[in-house]
Design a protein around this nucleic acid. Structure first.
Length: 563
RNA sequence: UGGGGCGUAGCCAAGCGGCAAGGCAGGGGCCUUUGGAGCCUCCAUUCGUAGGUUCGAAUCCUACCGCCCCAGCCA
């Protein structure tokens, strides 16, 4: 209305601008959007962008968003996918309330509208084969030719269409086409197929139908039935908009929805294509749709990405009409940002190196108080047992440290986080020269991690009491594809798969508190990264997936040194 | 060579005739009981190119260049 009453919108993009204007000008009373997945695969991060857009707009403008399954092709669709999609949308934090719909709910109405079109002389049954139809369609630069069946009488069309429904004909033998314009520059207008014969069992309607409406004939009309006001889809449907409008204008539909298109999400180092994801699963390149390396919502959930991070990411990348590829670092930033604030801190040693504190009592065990999350006072502290024999990370020791290496080395003092300062006094090696144990001394005056004399070691290490450490398996994950643009420059997509996208470490150790790790809850292993207990933990072996590493400036220094 | 779109920093993206937001990445510094986090700071005299209109153009006009989508009985 005016600047006083209008709340400052937190997000703004061209779609929200249109919705706001339509509301302001009274073209609509309330906004109604919909998220319309086809249940032929699992949802991925690209869908999350669309879900956040559609449900986000409905929430921000006080409207509603429907979840509607676009289930018009029974040969590809399965109940498993329907179930997973609902779970994923809920996980992302959205609620469709009562508004769960299926295009298949409208099959009878859609059929009647097809009959309506036939009666109006605007649709006909075509006996041409699929190949012939393709040939007759013309090319991008040449107009098409009209089918010889285009001039059938209304009566004959009605009879044939009824018999198509009755199951008298074989798959592919006939189709129903809208009669529009075989010479149109827009190929979607060259008499698009609106019904095809498919003798297949539909996940919802079973064998009730053997003819199914095409996307073009089902989508807009479904929107109209549900009184969707803003039908938001991706750019590749721009060419379909005139057809979308044609059906809406030529049918007695109950409302007038409008279609708007935005650029779909692309991400570096991965691929967001249902076709390719299906192949990764079917050909065994990954362990399943929910493999933590997959960009599916079930995959990233198992990986430990929080839903809030996904929503933040969606807000961060915006919504526009220019094709774009977002660097995956942006997603990772959104995830780290949430996890830094919320994840409990724990100690875990991935590659253990034994440390013996020679001047520490043999039989003493101290319970050290350790902060659960320095970013969140409310997270409190926990007790972590400390004793004479410890494990530290092998990477945290170097016998001959280079210039910028601040961690443990012979003669050097470092802090064991929330415990004591220790100084390396001796290095023990096996016959091959491999370091197998460090002997250290500790300063009893530094309990808790600070020295009365104010001295401050350059490094702080995480540690585990050897007697109390719990064995665990840890799975390290990295980008699914090594190339930022998989399959670019003529390469085969699968050549770009990262052979090291999954590394399984079976001899890790974690602090006792992690025995109670909740599956699906992401914690930070201090100085290492974020990790999430995997469902496989229920098999007996504690198993963690690395969600993401912490940003690591030492790794950067090393990389620079290496070149 | 048909139709539909899009070009603002390495990436994403605001901007809607009044003098280039913000985020990611990157550089430098401070701080630090996580080499994390945090804080400070630098990073487009220029908006695909060339003309034009205007006191004034990323914004308006013209032409050109580049990229994407469309020839499923997929969605």
């Amino acid at each position: 209305m005016d600047t006083h009453s209008a709340p400052t919108p937190e997000k703004s993009d061209f779609v929200r601008d249109i919705v706001a204007a339509d509301l302001r000008d009274g073209r609509i009373g309330a906004v109604v959007t919909r998220f319309p997945p086809e249940p032929n695969g699992y949802l991925h991060i690209g869908h999350a962008k669309s879900i956040c857009l559609n449900f986000g707009i409905a929430a921000e403008f006080g409207g509603r968003c429907h979840l509607r399954f676009d289930d018009t092709n029974p040969v590809k669709e399965e109940q498993e996918y329907i179930d997973s999609i609902m779970e994923d949308v809920r996980w992302l934090g959205f609620d469709w309330g009562e508004h769960l719909y299926y295009a298949s709910d409208y099959f009878e109405q859609l059929y009647e509208w097809a009959v309506y079109l036939i009666r109006e002389g605007k649709a006909y049954v075509d006996d041409l084969s699929a190949d012939e139809i393709r040939t007759f369609r013309g090319t991008l630069t040449e107009p098409g030719k009209e089918s010889p069946w285009r001039t059938r009488t209304v009566e004959e069309n009605l009879d044939l269409f009824e018999r198509m429904r009755a199951g008298e004909f074989e798959n592919g033998s006939r189709v129903l086409r809208a009669k529009i314009d075989m010479a149109s520059g827009n190929i979607n207008f060259r008499d698009p197929v609106i019904y095809r014969i498919v003798h297949a069992t539909h996940p919802r309607t079973g064998d009730a139908w053997c003819i199914y409406p095409s996307y073009d004939f089902a989508h807009g009309q479904s929107d109209a039935i549900e009184e969707v006001t803003h039908s938001i889809c991706t750019l590749e449907f721009q060419d379909h908009r005139p057809l979308y409008d044609w059906f809406i204008e030529n049918l007695p539909v109950p409302s007038r929805p409008h279609q708007y298109e935005f650029a779909r999400l692309n991400l570096t180092h991965t691929v967001l294509s249902k076709r390719v994801l299906l192949r990764l699963v079917r050909d065994g390149f990954v362990h399943g749709w929910d493999d933590p390396r997959m960009p599916t919502l079930s995959g990233i959930r198992r990986r430990g990405f929080p839903a809030e991070g996904m929503r933040d990411f969606a807000a961060m990348i915006g919504v526009a009409r220019a094709d774009s590829v977002v660097e995956i670092e942006m997603l990772e930033h959104a995830v780290r940002d949430v996890l830094n604030r919320t994840a409990l801190r724990r100690f875990a040693v991935l590659d253990p190196l034994k440390v013996v504190i020679e001047n520490y009592p043999d039989d003493l065990v101290e319970e050290m108080d350790v902060t659960n999350n320095p970013e969140d006072e409310g997270a409190g502290t926990r007790k972590v047992p400390f004793s004479r024999e410890l494990w530290i990370e092998r990477d945290d020791f170097m016998e001959d440290p280079p210039k910028k290496f601040f961690r443990l080395a012979p003669g050097r003092e470092v802090r064991l986080r929330s415990a004591y300062f220790v100084t390396c006094t001796d290095v023990i090696k096996d016959a091959d020269g491999t370091v197998i144990e460090l002997r250290c001394s500790y300063d009893p005056d530094t309990r808790g991690g600070s020295a009365p004399d104010g001295r401050r070691p350059k490094a702080t290490l995480h540690w585990l009491s050897a007697a109390h450490a719990v064995p665990a398996e840890v799975r390290l994950y990295d980008h699914l594809f090594t190339a930022p643009f998989p399959g670019s420059e003529g390469r085969d997509l699968f050549e770009d798969l990262n052979p090291d996208s999954e590394t399984v470490l079976r001899h890790c150790l974690v602090e006792p508190a992690l025995q109670d790790a909740v599956i699906g809850e992401t914690v930070q292993f201090e100085r290492l990264g974020y990790f999430c207990a995997d469902p496989d933990s229920s098999g007996g072996v504690l198993t963690f997936n690395r969600t993401l590493t912490l940003k690591d400036s030492w790794a950067k220094v090393q990389a620079q040194a290496t070149g």
